[in-house]
Amino acid sequence: MKILFAGKSKLDYNRVKVIKAGLEQLIDVEVIELKIKKGKSDNLKLLKQLDKEVDYIYIPPMRHADVSYIKKHTNKPIVFDPLISKYLTKADYGQFWKLPVKYFLDKIPFSKADILLADTNAHRDYFIKKFQLKTQKVHTLYIGADTKTFFKQKKESNANPNFIVGFYGSFIPLQGTDKIIETAYLLKDEKDLFFEIIGDGYTFKKAKQLAKKWNLTNIHFHGKVKYEKLSPLINSFDLCLGIFGNSKKADMVIPNKVYHYASIGKCILTKHTDGIKELFTDQKNIVLCDNSPKDMAEKIKNLKENPEQIKKVGLAAEKLLRIDYNEVEVAQRFLSILKQHKSAN
Rank of each mutant, 00 (worst) to 15 (best):
Y13N: 01
Y13K: 00
N14M: 00
A21M: 09
G22W: 05
L23A: 02
L26C: 05
V31L: 02
I32A: 06
L34G: 00
K37Q: 11
K45T: 12
L47F: 03
K48F: 00
L50D: 05
D55L: 07
I57A: 06
I57V: 10
I59S: 01
P60Q: 10
R63V: 07
D66A: 01
V67K: 02
S68N: 03
H73T: 13
N75R: 12
K76I: 04
I78E: 04
I78W: 01
V79W: 03
P82T: 11
L88E: 12
K90Y: 09
K90H: 08
A91E: 13
D92T: 15
Y93E: 11
Y93K: 11
L99T: 07
P100C: 01
Y103S: 06
K107P: 00
I108N: 09
A113W: 02
A118M: 08
D125P: 01
V138N: 11
H139R: 15
H139I: 15
H139P: 11
Y142G: 05
D146Q: 09
T147W: 03
F151H: 15
K154C: 08
A159Q: 14
F163V: 09
I164F: 07
F167M: 13
G169L: 13
G169Q: 10
K179S: 12
E182R: 14
D189I: 05
E196A: 04
K208G: 05
L210Q: 08
A211K: 13
K212A: 11
K212W: 04
T217V: 10
I219N: 01
Y227C: 14
Y227W: 15
D238L: 08
D238R: 02
G242Q: 13
I243F: 15
F244S: 11
N246H: 11
N246V: 12
S247W: 14
K249T: 13
I268E: 00
L269S: 02
I276F: 10
L279Q: 03
F280P: 01
Q283F: 00
K284M: 10
N285A: 06
I286L: 01
C289P: 04
D290S: 08
S292N: 09
P293N: 05
P293R: 02
K299S: 04
K301S: 02
N302E: 09
E308N: 14
K311V: 00
K312G: 06
V313P: 03
L315R: 07
L320E: 05
D324K: 13
E327N: 11
V330G: 01
L338C: 07
L338Y: 02
Q340H: 06
H341F: 13
S343P: 03
S343N: 14
A344D: 10
